[in-house]
Write a protein that binds this DNA or RNA. Sequence first.
DNA 1: CTAGACATGTAACGCGTTACATGATTAT
DNA 2: ATAATCATGTAACGCGTTACATGTCTAG
Lengths: 181, 181
Amino acid sequence: MKKDSLLGYALLGLLHQKPRSGYDLRKILAGTPMGTFSDSPGAIYPALQRLEHQEFVRGQILESSSLRRRRVFRPTVSGKRAFKAWQTKPISSADVIHGMDELMLRFSFMDETVGSAAAREFLRALVRELRSYIPVVRQFLKTNSRAMPLSGRLALESGLHSYEAVFRWAGTALRKYKRKK
Amino acid sequence: MKKDSLLGYALLGLLHQKPRSGYDLRKILAGTPMGTFSDSPGAIYPALQRLEHQEFVRGQILESSSLRRRRVFRPTVSGKRAFKAWQTKPISSADVIHGMDELMLRFSFMDETVGSAAAREFLRALVRELRSYIPVVRQFLKTNSRAMPLSGRLALESGLHSYEAVFRWAGTALRKYKRKK
DNA sequence: CTAGACATGTAACGCGTTACATGATTAT
DNA sequence: ATAATCATGTAACGCGTTACATGTCTAG
């Protein structure tokens, strides 16, 4: 449960929705926008083996009329526990600075696994971290932009705009949860 | 010149600004927001060795009054050529879908290396690609959102908002170039 | 004198990429 | 027939991560 790959968590999350084969998972990763994940067999089959070895998933060969073998995987009890623990662990400033992908992945499956109360708590924590980090970036830009060429300055600004977009998104997401409740 | 790491290009770009040592580069990567790059010695010294081996940079030991050795690197002629080629190669849809980081890195140093005309051309191409890709994501959301739980839908929407933010940014960036010209 | 910054490296390990390999089933 | 899709894997390779190793110089 130490240092697992994001791909592993993405697969584990998808397997929480329903049992799937490696091939099913590949198709989903290939066909979904936002798929910042690899859909190559050389990535996903080894990842499934690792999950199986950690006993986070269990594979089962489906006996069908055909000879074509097909292994579907489903999360084990300890796999579900590990997944929830990963999703609900506290958000650090490092997560916001270098791991926005991971944060979004953690959030993606929250309704199905830890419930909307945990999802709201996650969004509140994200808003908190962004509220403290965005001014840091703004300050950096203000003090250094004079020394930078236009393209460099603009590239940094684009990063700032991304953080601001996530900040706004998290706020509206929170309001949507409140409306639903 | 085939499949180089982003870190290598980031270092090469920084060395275009002025000769620097591995330690200098580390400090910059550690202290700059947007630094999605590693600042660990185990990443940057091997990366510099690779660049040296490809003859994209040359290291020179600075003789100072002290015994403390310090190697500063500067790009070679072929290093400069390779960097420009990488920056100005056409933007593909795959770049927009899976490689926004790389695109921003390519843009970051453009003023200093290929000039503002190339920077404007880059932004125009980026706008074009986004204009064709954003509707694809929107369509995906529209057709699949009904089947998704709220958190999953919101996560996808956050990706869409990111693309839209970059789109707006590229537009305003273009206008800033035009105003300056 | 000693903690911390300066400065450069190496080694084990994990994982994604690319390419290859194999075979079954369906559609043309 | 044969191409495309279904389906599962393996192997070489490159690179980043973490941790370790070594030594110098400066400030308190």
